[in-house]
Amino acid sequence: MNIFRLAGDMSHLLSVILLLLKIRTTKSCAGISLKTQELYVVVFLARYLNLFTRYYSFYNTVMKLVFIATSVCIVWYMRFHKVVKQTYNKDLDTFRHYVVIPPCFLLALLVHHEFTVMEVLWTFSLYLEAVAILPQLILLQRTRNIDNLTGNYIFLLGAYRALYLLNWIYRFFMEKAQARWISWISGLVQTALYADFFYYYIKSWKNNEKLKLPA
């Protein structure tokens, strides 16, 4: 474990806790993309299968359970909670997220470290996570005023993978870990998708004005 990875995990954990808090306290999921949340459930289920087959550490196991539980809980709130589901921007959240699942799976069948079920699903989860934020970013451009909690949620979510990139650089040089192109390239693509959001987020934070993405 290194500081970049710990910071990345904490940023990721904080993002999902912030989102859950927003939904629970405001009883609203306005501005949140259900499609992105559902893609994240698929990402976590596909990636954390080794939860049952390989024990790394208490921390590793607990965090995997937390990420699966929170992502499922958020989807439940947005789909079934009688008050919250009314606030879902159904008409704006129109990205057909099921379209990205087959290409990611096909790519995982073609490009992977090893052709086993666990490895292909793990690779699939990396490719899917790289594009999972797309519905949310598109919804943001359509949302009139983005509330602070939502902006902070997306910032932390983007920061987590950016910190993971630093973690991979650290491990490559310090632990002489071998190159893991699949993780690196997926992580780069994922972080790059946040580039313009980061720009507008930091600008709004500097000028102390409302976060606004150009349509």
Binding site: R54, Y56, H113, Y164, R171, Q178
Partner: peptide, 10 residues
């Protein structure tokens, strides 16, 4: 085939 160390990551 030794497990990639990356698997200890989230």
């Amino acid at each position: 085939y030794q497990e990639l160390p990356v698997k200890d990551e989230l």
